[in-house]
Design a binder for these strands. Structure first.
Lengths: 221, 221
DNA sequence: TTAACAATCTAACGATTGTTGGATTAATTT
DNA sequence: AAATTAATCCAACAATCGTTAGATTGTTAA
């Protein structure tokens, strides 16, 4: 079975392969952070390394990748080498990929709300997406209220882990998934405390300010 | 040395990591091709596999990745499962990443000209980019004219390999790099023939319709 | 000239991803 | 109920990528 590829097929392969170089360059969190930093203006490797909290060697390696995709350019000035984005289109692309991520990934939306320290309530569409993600096991939805309250009603696919048992049962939680904690609602601080503890212990945790009431799942008589 | 990460740092990591999911999803040539196919309308896995010339298993695996980044959605209809892009933003992103690739990567621009079968001359900016790529060894610029002509003048970083020796010396060329062949100019067919042979032998070759005259490097008395 | 500094290159490793074959699920047809 | 079809899941392997340590290249300052 000689796999004879047609000329057209071969040409197509080359084409998509080239576009994929841009995708590859933007497939690493650290490289994206470097791009964003460079969108603020040209910087040395040292500065970039410091601002993105990585070693200079690693920064250099990532910048090498970006340069091989022609997304950034360099210029030496004395002992330093200054990096800058190749042109305006690169900055526009950074905005585009970030926007798409915000549009498609609920987890990002929530993490964003978290970092701005003003966690917002989710739109109905966001809720759907969160439920979907929880069903597929992409995120862990954690109910940190006392067990009886969980038993009465809880968010879809949520698992119960009361705040006072959290410290003892940390090992039950995965470190590689985003944990979304919620409690009684935006005025209740249990979820916030839980998230603080989880973060301190190295988990990727975010705080959902809503509770069963806000989700229309409050138990009725 | 306990590497205590600050809360802000940790939150940032989550953010960029999420955006990188989109980058990862679009870092494979085959996944990009699948996205483009889906931009034309919903299709079954079988159709997608056929149209992108891969096995159904592989198509399924790639679609799984796309789905985990929420770029595509599925719906079962009888025996078939139909895939479609999640929303209009995904199609817009495909256009955006392709545009950026065309803007930044000369090789893509040239391959495109090649596939449309109307190889165009390069702008001065494109020439610069090609020279740069050749200098860095990213592409091989191949002069297929007779040796004496090469000796008289040739494009920057070009290597000589006369068309009548090409078949014998194929082993000197790398299979993992794009080979850009040129000859006397747009009316000369040596480079075209060379590219046809190279492609047939499994190389990634494209045809540059310009020669030393067009590049302003023609030898003078 | 030597020392110091900024950055890269090289080699190595472990982790992740791409790809394939074989078994499995789910819906349809016989 | 058995066979067929469409697609996925699982396990395995090879290929690629991320990361770090150690040596090296340019450039400036002493």
């Amino acid at each position: 079975m000689t796999s004879q590829k047609s000329t057209v097929r071969r040409a197509k392969d080359i084409l998509y392969e080239q576009v994929a170089r841009i995708g590859k360059a933007t497939s690493s969190a650290k490289r994206l952070e470097l791009i964003e930093l460079l969108c603020q203006g040209e910087k040395t490797v040292e500065t970039l390394a410091k601002e993105s909290a990585i070693s200079m060697k690693l920064a250099s390696a990532h910048l090498r990748e970006l340069r091989s995709a022609h997304l950034v350019e360099t210029e030496r000035s004395g002992k330093n080498i200054y990096y800058r984005i190749a042109n305006r289109e690169v900055a526009e692309f950074w905005v585009a990929i970030r926007s798409l991520a915000e549009d498609r990934l609920v987890e990002l939306k929530m993490a964003l709300a978290q970092i701005t320290n003003a966690p917002k309530e989710l739109t109905p569409k966001d809720r759907d997406a969160l439920v979907k993600a929880a069903r597929q096991g992409e995120v862990i939805v954690l109910d940190v209220r006392p067990s009886p309250e969980f038993a009465a009603a809880h968010l879809p696919y949520a698992q119960s882990l009361p705040i006072d048992q959290l410290r003892l049962r940390l090992s039950e939680l995965p470190k590689d998934k985003t944990i979304v904690a919620y409690c009684r609602g935006p005025y209740c601080l249990m979820a916030k405390d839980a998230v603080d503890l989880l973060k301190q212990k190295g988990f990727a945790a975010i705080h959902l300010p809503e509770g069963v009431a806000e989700w229309g799942m409050a138990p009725v008589r």
